[in-house]
Write a protein that binds this DNA or RNA. Structure first.
Length: 485
RNA sequence: GCUCCUGUAGUCUAGUGGUCAAGGAUAGAGGCCUCUCGAGCCUUUGACGCGGGUUCAAAUCCCGCCAGGAGCACCA
C-alpha cells in the first residue's frame, strides 16, 4: 500500500467552525489509521468581494488545530505559490486545453447557458500565449480577461462548460498585498498543488464535487495523475446556521465577543465552553462519509461531552436569577455545611461552606413551590410562605424583591423538591454566558470566585460550565461559559 | 430546469445475500436515587420510502416509481 497523504484546505475567514471540524478529524483519523501525512493548505487565493481572506484567521485556524491536538505535517499557503500556478498554464494553452477569453462576465455567463462558444476559444496558440502574457503584464483590468478551460460547451450541465481558471483581481491580499493580479480559481490551484504535494486522497464535503471533476479534467489534459476524491454530505447543527461570513460580521462589528463567542459555534468557542476536542471528534466521526445531508441536534454533541465530563467534574452551587431567602428557626449548631464535590466519587473530597440564616435560591423555584415544604439540597427542609410575590426585574444579587421568609422544619433528607442554594455569607457574583443570554446573572458559592481559567464545574440543576479568565476588575462578576445541561 | 447524490426508528448511525423476528447513540415514555426529577442509573416505545423482479434466501443485487438534498460565480 502506498503512503497516504491528506490535506485540509480551509479558507482563512475566521476560526474553524464545526463543519470544518469534520474535515479536520476525518483526515486526522485517516492519517493515523494509515500512518500517513496530513498537510494544512491555506486556501487563500484572493476570494471575491463577499469572501475575502481575513488576516487574523491564519492564526485562529492554527490555534484551533493546536487546541484539537492536531499537528499538521506541513503548512502551505496558496498565496505563496502563484508562480507555480503560472508555470503550467502555457502548456495548457499549447495543448489547446485552455484559452484566454475577453468576454465581459455577463456575456460569458449568458453564452455558457446557451452553450455558445466564445470566438476566442478557437484562436491559435501564439495568440493565446500573447494574451496570457498580456494578462500577466497588465494589459487588462479586472473583469476584462480570464483563462478558461476547454471542456465542452455542449455539456448537459452548464456548470461544466468551460469554467474559469484564472481571473484578474486588484484586491489587497493579507499576505502578498497587490504583488499578484492574476489569481487562479480554487480548482486550478488544487489541480497543481495536489499533484505537486503528492496528495493521495482528498476527503471533503460534496459541495466541491464539480471542482474536483475540473481537477480531473486538468490532470487528463496535462497527463498527470491526481488523488482520489471522497465526499461527505452537508452537516448542520439544528440550533444554528453555520455561516462563517455572518459570524464574521458580528465578530467584526463587536456584536459578538470575538470568535470565541459561543454564538459563532467556532471551534474556539466550543473550547471556551469546555466542550472537549475528543467529544467533537467522536461526534463528527459518528457520521461516517455518507453523502446524504444531515441535520443533527446539538444535544448529540452535548451527550458526547457529558459522557467525558460527568465522571470528573466537581459540583458547585449556582443560583440563576436569585431571590434572598431567610430561614427562621435555624438550628443554632449549623454554622458549616460539608458538601461532596461529586455525588458518586468520595475521593474527590468535600468542601466546607459557611452558613447563616440567609440564602439565595432561584426565584423561579420559590414561585413554583410557594406554600410547600422544600429541601435545601444536602442541608435542611423549610416551609415556604403561602404567597411569594414575584419581584419585578430580578436583580443579580437577589435584592430586588422582598426577602422571602421561610420556616425551618427538619434536618433529615425527605422526598421533597430539592433546590440548590447559595449561602448569602460570602456568596459571589456570577455571570454566565449562555447561548440564549450572554449575561445570565446569579450568585454562586464563595469558592467560585477564585476558580482558575479553564476549570470545569457542574452547577447543580443548571449544567456544565467552564471558567473564563479572572476579570481584571475584582468587582466584576466571575464569568463562566455555559456548555450544556 | 439541468447535473450529480442520497433514502434504516423523531434524529444520527451499524448493516455489503443467510448468524437481522435489524444493533448502537440521542431524543421520548416509565421507574430508581440517605439528597442534582435539568445530572446519574434501570426499563421501555420506535425503522429497512413504495412497487416489481433475481434467489432456496434480500435492509443488502437489478428495474421502475416516489421523496429528499447538493451544485449550477471571474467565491471558497
Amino acid at each position: 500500500m502506498g503512503k497516504v497523504v491528506l490535506r485540509l484546505a480551509p479558507f482563512p475567514s475566521g476560526s474553524l467552525h464545526i463543519g470544518n471540524a469534520r474535515g479536520l478529524f476525518v483526515n486526522q483519523e485517516y492519517r493515523q489509521r494509515y500512518r500517513g501525512k496530513f498537510f494544512l493548505v491555506f486556501d487563500d487565493t484572493v476570494g471575491s468581494e463577499e469572501k475575502r481572506p481575513v488576516p487574523e484567521s491564519y492564526d485562529l485556524i492554527l490555534q484551533d488545530m493546536a487546541a484539537a491536538g492536531i499537528q499538521p505535517d506541513a503548512i502551505y499557503y496558496k498565496s505563496d505559490r502563484l508562480e507555480l500556478y503560472y508555470r503550467d498554464l502555457p502548456r495548457l494553452l499549447d495543448l489547446g486545453a485552455a484559452y484566454v477569453c475577453t468576454c465581459p462576465a455577463e456575456l460569458l455567463r449568458k453564452n455558457r447557458e446557451a452553450g455558445v462558444a466564445c470566438p476566442e476559444r478557437s484562436r491559435e496558440t501564439p495568440w493565446q500565449r500573447d494574451q496570457w502574457a498580456g494578462m500577466l503584464g497588465g494589459r487588462y483590468a479586472p473583469g476584462e480577461a480570464v483563462v478558461r478551460i476547454k471542456t465542452d460547451m455542449g455539456h448537459p450541465n452548464p456548470a461544466f462548460r468551460d469554467r474559469v481558471l484564472f481571473r484578474i483581481s486588484d484586491f489587497h491580499h493579507p499576505r502578498v498585498g497587490t504583488r499578484y493580479r492574476v489569481w487562479p480559481m480554487l480548482e486550478y490551484a488544487f489541480a497543481i498543488d495536489d499533484v505537486e504535494l503528492g496528495i493521495t486522497h482528498v476527503i471533503r464535503g460534496k459541495e466541491l464535487i464539480i471542482e474536483d471533476m475540473m481537477e480531473e479534467a486538468l490532470w487528463r489534459a496535462l497527463g498527470l495523475r491526481g488523488p482520489a476524491f471522497l465526499h461527505w454530505g452537508l452537516l448542520r447543527i439544528r440550533e444554528t446556521k453555520i455561516s462563517k461570513s455572518k459570524s464574521y460580521q458580528d465578530v467584526k462589528s463587536g456584536a459578538y465577543d470575538g470568535w470565541a463567542d459561543p454564538r459563532t459555534w467556532s471551534l474556539s468557542s466550543l473550547s471556551r465552553r469546555g466542550i472537549r476536542p475528543q467529544a467533537i471528534r467522536d461526534f463528527v466521526l459518528s457520521f461516517g462519509l455518507s453523502q446524504s445531508d444531515i441535520e443533527v441536534p446539538a444535544e448529540t454533541l452535548y451527550a458526547e461531552n457529558r459522557r467525558l465530563l460527568d465522571p470528573t467534574t466537581p459540583r458547585r452551587a449556582f443560583v440563576p436569577r436569585p431571590r434572598r431567602l431567610r430561614v427562621e428557626g435555624m438550628p443554632g449548631d449549623l454554622r458549616v455545611a460539608r458538601l461532596a464535590n461529586h455525588p458518586e466519587r468520595p475521593e474527590m473530597g468535600e468542601r466546607e461552606v459557611e452558613i447563616s440564616d440567609a440564602f439565595f435560591l432561584p426565584e423561579a423555584d420559590l414561585l413554583k413551590n410557594a406554600g410547600k415544604e422544600i429541601r435545601l439540597k444536602d442541608l435542611l427542609n423549610v416551609q415556604l410562605p403561602p404567597q411569594v410575590p414575584p419581584s419585578e426585574g430580578v436583580e443579580a444579587d437577589g435584592e430586588a424583591g422582598a426577602e422571602v421568609i421561610a420556616t425551618f422544619t427538619t434536618r433529615p433528607n425527605k422526598p421533597l423538591p430539592r433546590i440548590q442554594w447559595v449561602a448569602a455569607k460570602g456568596a459571589t457574583h456570577i455571570d454566565v454566558f449562555t447561548l440564549e443570554d450572554p449575561h445570565l446573572l446569579g450568585m454562586g458559592e464563595a469558592s467560585l470566585s477564585s476558580s482558575r481559567e479553564g476549570q470545569l464545574f457542574q452547577f447543580e440543576r443548571f449544567g456544565f460550565v467552564r471558567a473564563d479568565p479572572q476579570p481584571e476588575d475584582p468587582e466584576q462578576p466571575r464569568r463562566f461559559i455555559f456548555a450544556h445541561p
